[in-house]
Design a protein around this nucleic acid. Structure first.
Length: 753
DNA sequence: GACCTGCTGCGGGATG
């Protein structure tokens, strides 16, 4: 583009924008609108449908939404027009505020940030004189509805647009359900639907994704998916072998294989900017401490910075600043905190240590590298596998971690990722919404609650008897009561709940100790972690000695020291794996084709896994007798495996889902076959299976649910009886099995140097 | 089950 003709204004949507925005774009030196921006402008200006804009982080999605939104707001006057922008992160609101302010000012449109760190005076000003762009979190919107209910029909009167940023981060979660309910309640207040615009990372199946923006599907959803540039992908997977048995000291302070991974990271990444994703905060601490010491021992300035959710804002910002500055190379060792949209500047490569949690997450992580034109995306994956021994289990023999990693990379290269999961009851969040609506309106009839939240709202999976039982239970617990006219009101207990600030978040969090060194807050660790004066701790990538522990104030004072144990964040490894990934693992194992992106050790490990697969003839055998146990290999996802394990448990068997297989103790393969035949044929009630599960309380208000509803809720989220039966029937009745073919286009993968 | 995220309004004191 030349200066005399900076934009194809006659042929693009550019001409539809407010002249002041055109001027701003021109002054910013943009040579043309991006594809997604160009396509979004007419759809948003017309405003006839909802819209999802799917593209990778920082690809101009926000501008695609706000150029036309501000154009439209600039044209309206009475009532004062308003656009609502909802973000999952306060940090993103602050970013967007900075980016939007100058542009909005040119159009004399007010931009108001509203979250927990914004002073109340600013919020009061907005309530008195609403309009412009309101940037808010779901929690703050909840608080607004709860506390300013009487004023809100006036505040939202001029609402023209709702933008949901990072839509993918809300899907299938309590927060997502809460947000859908809040948006529905706002529309109900003003008595008309408002165009919703979702900004998202690319999602597996976009047709399913359309339902996540407005659950009842009452409006059309337009979809703008930015064409992924044919970018080169370079992949190298390395294998590392761990001795079969570790000494006590090694298992505490770091195994030889982990030390070798750290050495490899040091050798390969030093001198460039990168992101390293181990799968836990403990591993982040291990690697960042070790890598920083390696720098010190060699007399180099440190280039490795830890970043995870338990580190204080200050320490996280240090890591972000180190990545953004250009004087010195920096690598962050991080959890999914750096998967989100925080700006961290260009990154050369992404390192995955251990299998990724999902293909979707791997894609998000990888999208952080190769952002400069002409640069490839570079993925390195390090897999630690145990040396084979006489007592190695199936998972070790089939090299589960390595196979999962290879399978996920192959699916990623083919453009697949996990689809949106099926709808759940979300009864815990329904409790919150009932109480919040009562606070908002000062009371409501059961029928009104039912219509607002269930029949026209997002909780449509809840039945009338379930809803009635829930209201009864809340009444028994003296959270609500009914006056003689039938009006439901908040009882003092419910009043207190909704008045306290802790009510507004839909998700729950554990209590924690704050870790302080001098006057500096380093972060927090769970209360369950045993800490005592004199003990040692590795935290924020450094070593500390505990000076004092205040149980009451929940504060731990530490001083820098030489020793250190890992902080011990709780939790087992792994999220629910999708069935498609297991099918791909099987395809990798049954094939003899070389996997070009494996190093020599990785090749050897894969060869061992394939040898095991062939030796047990796993193409045909799916019931393996190993000692006195039977392993059931369905090559399905975790939901189906978990459901099968529970179904076996309800028959009094000792069964457990172990990832790859479902293990049943003290049984023969023939006996197992008979029982599985019965499970495949019989009528099985998922709620009865859920009733046998202990510790079902997971979400914030699960404790207030009637037992039946809690069971149904658990079943809706975790149990897939038809899935189990379909697989079992195929295994037991039919002949040859169906394997996934190598359909679809394979993205060519190169190797990094 | 990994990981992550969020939160009100008053009242007192200083300042213009």
């Amino acid at each position: 583009m030349t200066n005399s003709h900076p934009l194809r204004s006659e042929t693009t949507s550019f001409a539809m924008l407010d002249p002041r925005i055109q001027h701003w774009i021109w002054r910013s030196g943009w040579t043309e609108l991006r594809d997604a921006q160009d396509r979004a402008i007419p759809v948003i200006l017309e405003g006839k449908s909802d819209l999802i804009i799917a593209a990778s982080t920082a690809s101009g999605k926000t501008e695609a939404a706000f150029f036309p939104i501000l154009t439209r707001l600039g044209r309206c006057s009475d009532p004062p027009p308003l656009a609502l922008y909802v973000s999952p992160l306060k940090a993103l609101i602050n970013d967007q505020w900075r980016r939007l302010e100058e542009l909005a000012e040119a159009l004399e449109i007010e931009v108001t940030p509203w979250h927990g760190d914004i002073p109340y005076s600013r919020k009061k000003r907005f309530l008195a004189d609403p309009g412009g762009c309101l940037l808010i979190t779901p929690e703050s919107l909840e608080a607004m509805l709860c506390r300013h209910g009487h004023a809100l029909s006036r505040v939202f009167q001029g609402l023209q647009y709702v933008v949901v940023d990072e839509l993918h981060a809300f899907i299938g979660t309590e927060r997502g359900m809460q947000l859908l309910s809040l948006l529905h309640r706002v529309e109900s207040l003003i008595g008309r639907p408002v165009m919703r615009i979702g900004l998202s990372a690319t999602l597996g199946d976009m047709t399913l994704a359309k339902k996540v923006l407005r659950q009842d599907g009452s409006r059309k959803v337009a979809l703008i998916e930015s064409k992924s540039a044919n970018q080169e992908l370079k992949v190298l997977v390395k294998g590392f072998v761990e001795p079969a048995k570790l000494t006590l000291d090694q298992s505490k302070t770091g195994s030889p294989a982990r030390a070798a991974v750290a050495q490899d990271i040091f050798d390969v990444l030093r001198g460039t900017n990168n992101l390293v994703f181990p799968n836990s905060r403990d591993d982040v601490e291990y690697y960042s401490d070790r890598l920083r010491r390696m720098c010190e021992e060699r007399g180099f300035p440190n280039e490795f910075w830890p970043h995870h959710g338990n580190l204080s804002k200050e320490i996280r910002e240090e890591a972000e600043a180190a990545l953004k500055q250009t004087e010195r190379p920096a690598t962050a060792i991080c959890t999914s905190t750096l998967e989100l949209g925080i700006d961290i500047g260009p990154v050369r490569s992404v390192v995955q240590v251990g299998p990724p949690p999902s293909v979707a997450s791997l894609r998000q992580r990888l999208g952080r590298s190769g952002r400069r034109p002409g640069e490839p995306m570079i993925l390195r994956a390090d897999c630690i596998e145990k040396e084979l021994g006489a007592d190695s289990g199936l998972s070790i023999m089939l090299r589960e971690g390595l196979s999962t990693t290879v399978a996920m990379i192959r699916l990623l290269a083919r453009g697949w990722c996990e689809p949106v999961s099926k709808s759940q009851l979300h009864a815990s969040t329904l409790v919150q919404q009932i109480l919040s609506v009562l606070a908002q309106y000062g009371g409501a009839h059961a029928q009104q609650l039912w219509e607002l939240l269930v029949t026209t709202g997002p909780f449509s999976a809840v039945s009338a008897p379930q809803f009635g039982a829930l209201l009864q239970k809340l009444r028994q617990n003296e959270i609500i009561f009914q006056d003689p006219t039938g009006l439901i009101l908040l009882a003092p207990k419910g009043e207190a709940m909704t008045q306290h600030y802790s009510f507004y978040a839909a998700f729950s969090t554990d209590d924690e100790y704050t870790i302080v060194s001098g006057h500096r807050t380093l972060g927090s660790v769970p209360l369950s972690r045993p800490l005592y004066p004199g003990g040692f701790l590795i935290f924020a990538g450094r070593r500390w000695q505990v000076i004092s522990v205040s149980e009451e104030g929940r504060i731990v004072q530490v001083n820098p020291a030489g020793g250190g144990n890992l902080p011990g964040f709780e939790g087992a490894l792994g999220a629910a794996l999708h069935g498609r990934v297991r099918e791909e693992m099987r395809a990798v194992l049954r094939s003899s084709e070389a996997v070009p992106f494996l190093d020599a050790v990785g090749q050897r490990l894969l060869a061992e896994a394939r040898e095991t697969y062939a030796r047990y003839d796993l193409d045909k055998n799916w019931l393996l007798q190993l000692g006195s146990d039977v392993h059931i290999l369905l090559w399905t996802g975790d939901r189906i495996n978990d459901t099968l394990a529970l179904a076996l448990q309800t028959r009094g068997l000792k069964a457990a889902s172990e990832g790859l297989s479902v293990a049943v103790k003290g049984i023969s393969a023939d006996e197992a076959r008979g029982i599985l035949l019965a499970i495949g044929r019989e009528q099985i009630d998922p709620i009865r299976i859920a009733a046998g599960v202990q510790n079902k309380i997971r979400e914030k208000w699960d404790g207030l649910l009637p037992n039946d509803l809690l069971d149904a809720c658990y079943a809706s989220a975790n149990i897939d009886v038809p899935g189990v039966q379909k697989v079992l029937r195929a295994k037991l009745n039919c002949g040859p099995e169906h394997f996934w073919g190598e359909n679809g286009k394979t993205h060519p993968i190169g190797l990094p140097k």
